[in-house]
């Protein structure tokens, strides 16, 4: 079976991609194996986090929750999100209004010949 997808301007073959993945995976593994620190000893004191001498908090407390991820992205786009949140009121009457509004615009464009 042919795995090549002809896109009209080029092609895509997943086997080629997998071949490249294997090559670069192999190189990455080689580099990792070559430069790994031989002094590293898992399961000893050296792998424990150093928090200025304070005891390590429970894993639950330091787990990165969903709300923590992309906090900066959302904060950076505060203006946009403020508008987008207002658009999503959860009120079914607003859903109907959006539908009516879009319908009116579509009809003006089509019937008005704009």
């Amino acid at each position: 079976m042919d795995l090549t997808l002809l896109t009209g301007y080029g092609f895509w073959n997943p086997l080629l991609w997998l071949a490249f993945l294997l090559i670069f995976g192999g190189i990455s593994y080689f580099l990792w194996a070559l430069r790994g620190n031989p002094a590293y000893k898992p399961g000893t004191e050296q792998v424990k986090p150093f928090i200025s001498g304070n005891p390590e908090p429970a894993k639950d407390l330091v787990h990165i929750r969903a709300r923590h991820i992309y906090w900066g992205f959302v904060e950076g786009l505060r203006g946009y999100y403020s508008f987008a949140r207002k658009m999503h009121t959860g009120d079914v009457r607003d859903y109907a209004l959006w539908y009516l509004g879009v319908g009116v615009v579509v009809l003006i464009l089509l019937v008005g010949g704009i």
Partner: peptide, 8 residues
Amino acid sequence: IALGLLLT
């Protein structure tokens, strides 16, 4: 008009 309503 029919087209516009169906499309929307």
